[in-house]
């Protein structure tokens, strides 16, 4: 493993009422590591991701990110979350603000930057995702791929230590997927630690250090992309990989 752990989730259980969604999951990432989480829908992979910034409160277990215990009631969660960027399947851009407004809201209201400072940082973040010329556009005026890149800019403008991606390309038309994956690849090359819930196999093969396969709330197996995709050890993994490759 390259470097020391930066994400340490251990023994995570999550119940939604009678539903037991996560059944004792451990996920540890070293700095600069990119981990792919795959699995059938309902396997708990998105819930696991959402536990890593406490959008979902685990029923039990521990989550430590960049040395901060997220489940400690004394933790300032708003402060901690600035170091954990998140990108959603449905972008979730603020429709009443421009691209730059989306990117600078947290910079101004949480990080305490002045408007000019925030605008400079926000413009730089938009430039990083190749959208410097779209700063004044509202989300409605942007394509899905551009919207998702603005969402990535919104997260990286806060200079997070870890980025979480929840099916970032699932809502996109096929021809727009490439631009978003390109930005993710750049992030990867800049050394960002990333957890990606996605079924983009090609990207996983090229970019992931590790692939984790989940089913029914538990990690079934994990390994290098080559190992998981070509010589999976479990029947369930094999069946799942076969299914998504047929598409």
């Amino acid at each position: 493993m390259p470097g020391k752990p930066i994400v340490e989730a251990r023994g995570i259980h999550k119940h939604f009422g009678a539903l037991h969604v996560l059944k004792g999951v451990d996920l540890v990432l070293a700095e600069r590591e990119l981990v792919f989480v795959i699995g059938p829908s309902g396997s708990g992979k998105s819930t696991l991701l959402r536990c890593l910034n406490r959008l979902e409160q685990p029923s039990s277990g521990s989550v430590v990110v960049d040395g901060v215990d997220l489940l400690d009631p004394r933790t300032d969660i708003n402060h901690a979350r600035q170091r954990i960027g998140m990108v959603f399947q449905s972008f979730n851009l603020y429709p009443h603000m421009t691209a730059l407004g989306n990117v600078t809201l947290a910079l101004r209201k949480v990080a305490g930057k002045s408007r000019s400072e925030a605008d400079a940082l926000g413009s730089a973040a938009l430039a990083r995702v190749g959208l410097a010329d779209r700063a004044g556009h509202t989300p409605g005026q942007l394509s899905g791929g551009q919207q998702q890149r603005v969402a990535i800019a919104r997260a990286i403008a806060l200079e997070p230590r870890v980025m979480l991606f929840d099916e970032p390309t699932s809502a996109l038309d096929p021809e727009l997927v490439g631009s978003v994956l390109g930005v993710m690849r750049d992030l990867r090359e800049s050394g960002m630690t990333m957890v990606v819930v996605s079924h983009e196999m090609g990207f996983a093969r090229n970019a992931a250090d590790r692939v984790v396969f989940m089913d029914e709330g538990a990690i079934i197996e994990e390994g290098t992309p080559a190992a998981i995709f070509e010589t999976p050890g479990h029947e369930r993994t094999r069946a799942f990989i076969g299914q998504i490759q047929r598409h």
Partner: peptide, 22 residues
Amino acid sequence: PAGQTEAARSTGVGRLQTMLYV
């Protein structure tokens, strides 16, 4: 949509400010 609140909260914006600005 709940995703609006989640997006803001995920960037560290507090509950009240999320309500006010988003």
